[in-house]
Write a protein that binds this DNA or RNA. Structure first.
Lengths: 139, 139
DNA sequence: TTGCTATTGCAAATCGTTTGCAATAAGCAT
DNA sequence: ATGCTTATTGCAAACGATTTGCAATAGCAA
């Protein structure tokens, strides 16, 4: 199930049309591994087709988000821009380095264990959670 | 060590002055247990003293954040506003309910254990981390 | 092809937050 | 207390990211 196919389906299901601009945007996203924002995506898209407007990028991102193909990424403490990541990711986690501000992804099955334990402890189903360490304020 | 005293100290250390407006804002914050944003704080402050402007609220929040007395709170997926929480909190965590959107705080020493284990595993010092559960996209 | 209507680019609008400026007030020195 | 220096204020304009109104364009089903 490719990202493009999924997107195509989502758009069609919503009674939408697969335009040239949307195809380009979705193709670019399909190749994306890192997080991205509207501006960066817009600039990249422009390189291939200068008939893509920023408004269209925003509109397309909103559609993809609404259909769960991409999701906002809030690890970065930059509250100015809205960053996205693809939704078809494996379960993964990230640290943000206080010095270089880089987002460092990692895996650890310890976290799966924590999740299970918390569900047990608290009697809830964890769908999405944010756990904050440290008692000092982030930079 | 009261919040007000800490704030007073922080402002003084920065060569600042404790004005009537700042005192009011800080006093309101000292009584705050939930997360807050500039707008809500502004409206509350207005009830006590209608000579407090939104600009002053923003400026005061920026000072308090710079001095580590409050910290931005990014659990909420509302990327429109900037939410804060007091920094002098114990280590605590929160779930966001997908249905009612409420932020549910909780404690669990399991997380302290996870933190220690990750530091061991990865050879880093955890100051602040965000751990995301679930492979489906958040609402 | 034709026709209906979703989509586009543009520019103007919005929303939260920041900033320039002239007036005011903290608080130190007297 | 009084005066002086300068940080702080309120206001309104500026800002940057995102959204939206509109007339023109282009999917796509018949």
């Amino acid at each position: 199930m490719t990202f493009l196919a999924d997107a195509q389906q989502a758009i069609k299901d919503a009674g939408g049309r697969m335009t040239e601009q949307r195809r380009l945007i979705v193709e670019l996203l399909a190749q994306t591994t890192e997080q991205f924002d509207a501006e960066r995506l817009y600039l990249t898209a422009r390189e291939q087709n200068d008939g893509v407007s920023l408004a269209t990028v925003y509109r397309t991102l909103n559609i993809l988000e609404a259909h769960g193909l991409i999701a906002p990424h809030y690890v970065s403490r930059d509250h100015e821009r809205k960053y996205y990541e693809l939704s078809n990711h494996d379960e993964y986690y990230h640290f943000t380095c206080r010095n270089c501000r880089k987002v460092i992804p990692f895996r650890s099955d310890r976290i799966q264990a924590l999740k299970a334990a918390l569900e047990q402890d608290l009697g809830i189903e964890v769908m999405h959670a944010c756990v904050c360490f440290g008692d000092d304020s982030p930079a």
